[in-house]
């Protein structure tokens, strides 16, 4: 069951990620990215990271993608003039390098399977909201506060950036 679900989600994620890169219309790219993010939320669920799966849907598929779609529709960029073509040497080189990268990771991971070892202990309750909260507000309290500061800086920066006359 887990296995077939993983393959369904992984295939969906890979295909829609490819669509993000190869499609010409930015709106289609954004919608494909939403599908990728939803499949990734499913994969997080299979890995028993329940809290992060929900956060993935709320933050990425909700907030970030709305921002992307908003900017795409605001700027209405249309289609790219010079688009990916298979005869362009740049496209070929990048594709070959990406495939080489995947192959490298494949062989690296396959070669070190013996060192990764078995799943440790019982992991029924690892990714629940309770556990995440307990760790976040004790061990990682300072990074959490710094993250809130980062969000404040981003907020001020984004507002300032869109002012018409910066003087």
């Amino acid at each position: 069951m887990t296995e077939s679900l993983f393959f369904i989600f992984a295939t969906m994620a890979i295909v829609s990620a490819l669509t993000v890169v190869v499609t010409r219309n930015p709106i289609y790219s954004a919608v494909s990215l939403v599908i990728t993010l939803f499949s990734l939320a499913g994969i997080f669920l299979l890995l028993e990271a329940y809290f992060l799966a929900v956060v993935q849907i709320i933050i990425y598929a909700g907030a970030i993608m709305v921002l992307f779609l908003f900017v795409i529709m605001l700027l209405n960029p249309g289609k790219e003039a010079k688009f990916l073509s298979l005869t362009d040497p740049r496209t070929l080189i990048v594709t070959l390098l990406s495939i080489a990268f995947i192959g490298m990771i494949f062989s690296l991971v396959s070669g070190s399977v013996n060192y990764i070892g078995e799943v440790m202990g019982s992991v029924e309750e690892l990714g629940t909201t309770r556990n995440i909260g307990l760790t976040l507000f004790t061990k990682y309290l300072l990074p959490f506060e710094i993250a809130s500061l980062l969000l404040l800086v981003a907020l001020v920066g984004a507002v300032l950036m869109t002012k018409r006359n910066l003087r």
């Binding site: 990271a49 956060v55 993935q56 933050i59 799943v119 690892l126 990714g127 980062l150 907020l155």
Partner: peptide, 25 residues
Amino acid sequence: SRQMNNIDGQIFVFFVMTLAAAEVA
């Protein structure tokens, strides 16, 4: 994180998501 039965990796993902939101804005 699942493999090592250690929650620190998931906390890190939480921070990566925070960073991604700020970066996109």
